[in-house]
Amino acid sequence: MNASTMIGTHVDVRDLVVEFGKRTALDGVDLQLDTGVHGLLGPNGAGKTTLMRVLATVARSTSGSVSLLDHDLSKQRDLRMVRRRLGYLPQQFGYYPRFTVREFVEYFAWLKEMTPSAVPLAVDHAIERVGLADRADDRLKKLSGGMLRRAGIAQAIVNDPDVLLLDEPTAGLDPEQRVEFRELLRTIGVDSCVLVATHLVEDVAVACTHVTVVSDGRAVFRGTPDDLVAAGEDTSDGDSPIERGYTAAIRAARKR
């Protein structure tokens, strides 16, 4: 039996504040997420990346509470447990050009402290899931932007994470890859919590079960993509119904 069982909320953020010097990046965010694919929408500079970094355990909060998988992130003892079950792909992810796809994914499998005997199969599985099986032994410097992004996703899912954080994951993917990627996201979201930060409203409309809109460091909208569409019925700004909803949510928040 696996000792680390998930029963409560995957992500539980209460009144999260993050300040850099005098600047407030997040100003009292509340967020509760369970299994499923969750979209995090917002204009550039709204605080999406900061929120992702706090959830990825690489940045610390100024105040408020953050717990992942029922572990309080402020407790150092719990941090290690949480990190083993986390997957993270930052927007700008560094890579080692001379590594092959397989070595790159394997590197993170080891860093995530996976069982040695499980590593080769997990690496193979992750590479297969992102559709890079035939390029597994190519060096990263030989890959296109879209393929690199997929290698990044492979490292994020190699440990079959309970919480998967992807910051602008569709950047560099062509339309066909984007469709495949959304399919993969839905599959992962069946039994884990996927949070996708994006500025592309269409990604959210197609792939996500829930949406959170962030603006000026606050969560200004939470609901399903349909709810967001409904929020935009009275405006005409935007090319699609969900885009109108997004614009309306941001405007309503700014008026307050």
């Binding site: 039996m1 696996n2 069982t5 998930m6 029963i7 309970d162 069946v190 039994d191 884990s192």
Partner: peptide, 24 residues
């Protein structure tokens, strides 16, 4: 699922389509 097949609680939950708490 959990004893004979050696699945984790989460995997068993996915396979049996029941919540993890129910598996436990």
């Amino acid at each position: 699922a959990t004893v004979l097949d050696g699945l984790s609680t989460r995997e068993a939950a996915t396979l049996l389509d029941i919540p993890e708490g129910t598996v436990k």
